[in-house]
Design a protein around this nucleic acid. Structure first.
Lengths: 234, 234
DNA sequence: AAGACTTATTGTATTTAATACTACAACTAA
DNA sequence: TTAGTTGTAGTATTAAATACAATAAGTCTT
């Protein structure tokens, strides 16, 4: 075997991990951003991310880095795309892997930590110029997220455990930029494994909506038995 | 900023690219495999792949490596997943990125080149033990491919330019392990932007089937105008 | 306590699409 | 002409999406 370049020279890359944390609040899908307290891109807002350790598995790195920067634990992270333009990092060849997660904003209290100076939830369509190629990473990952919304019940990971059907509808309306007829929406979702709770909204100045929860156990059972396939708008 | 490990130590990774080339022939989806003529895993069958150059963009690396090993050019490669278990490569920390492509097997003539000793198309459900973690990479990538079959007309990239409706049906039947009613199948696909050709099958010892082609131009126009959404079985 | 207001829910009529199945027409090779 | 395989048409049934109207259920104000 003959490499055009000596083999050892190839072990000169760095590999990083960016964690895109999405949440839903006030009818908008938000992304968690951090303000960098160091160079490069000091003072810039960025997606939380850092370098992977040499002997560390990727899922572990994603969890560790997220916790180090934001103190968030027990977040289910999934792999997204890879971004590896040779000049994307000013200090060398750093290839990065996006991991994404959905969280319930009302139960999530991220705190700036390590080299993070400040931390903010920003609606995805109001994000301005970010560090590195993070705008590109965000756009691609959010696009992927939306595609998953159609065939996987992952939106329930970002809705409160107890949510109203209007909130669910708003989430889909925001994600896909559409308006949905309310009565028809509710007919469609009555097939979903939702549990209607005995509780209602509180502290609202109109008729309180009934609260629902998503029954993950029932969902898994139905899917396993092949009796159900999640699908919102083909 | 304080790293737990000196920054330079992080620039000790290697990054590789694996190219999963899928084709369709005789009713089966095939994957292109190469026989390694060198260590590690000398003599093993593997997914064609190699190291990315330090200043090379990922899509470029995918095209270059595919051509170096198989002499295939002008193949549209798309990004798949990343595989980075610390011990997946015996010679160090090599993180790899899967790129995938569909090709028309009747127009494609890969030739073993560089360190490739031999080369073979293997039906995806008949692949045996491969080098490294390539079985895992194949399984994950093929799964993703099948998901894309449902919402993107990518299957037409692996069918001959002129194909019969039976071939199209067989492709979906193989991918999803199902049987489809022929009359109903044809009713469904009559919405697709297919062009019915004046030509027919030749050298068959039964009634020759009409040949069709997929009209990519029409497809793009329809999608752009929002008048069409590709969808085979929700 | 009545009425204004907002939201939640039910209902119906219509259209559209998926499904299962039957029958037969077309073409080649022997 | 016949056997074999492919292609096409049609129907009856079931299920789902859509548009729209109407009513019920709460909260707040007066």
């Amino acid at each position: 075997m003959v490499y055009k370049i000596k083999f050892d020279q190839f072990f000169s890359y760095s590999f990083s991990m960016d964690c895109l944390i999405f949440g839903f609040s006030n009818g908008k899908i938000h992304i968690l951003l951090v303000k960098r307290a160091m160079e490069p891109y000091g003072g810039y807002w960025a997606i939380p991310g850092d370098l992977v350790y040499p002997d560390e598995d990727l899922p572990h790195a994603a969890e560790r880095i997220l916790e180090e920067l934001t103190e968030l634990k027990n977040v289910v992270l999934r792999q997204g795309g890879v971004f590896g333009k040779p000049n994307r990092h000013p200090q060398g060849r750093v290839i990065t892997n996006a991991y994404l997660a959905m969280v319930r904003m009302n139960e999530t209290n991220p705190q700036p930590s390590s080299w993070v100076e400040e931390l903010r939830w920003v609606p995805v369509d109001e994000v301005e110029s970010l560090a590195f190629d993070h705008n590109e990473i965000l756009t691609a990952t959010y696009q992927r997220l939306k595609e998953r919304f159609i065939h996987e019940p992952i939106c329930f990971e970002m809705l409160p455990l107890k949510f109203t059907l209007n909130e669910l509808q708003q989430l889909y309306e925001y994600a896909f930029g559409i308006c949905i007829d309310k009565p028809n929406f509710r007919k469609r979702i009555k097939n979903l494994p939702l549990t209607e709770l005995k509780e209602r909204q509180e502290n609202v100045k109109h008729r309180p909506a009934t609260l629902y929860s998503f029954d993950w156990e029932k969902y898994k059972t139905l899917v396993k038995e092949g009796r159900f396939e999640f699908n919102m708008w083909l």
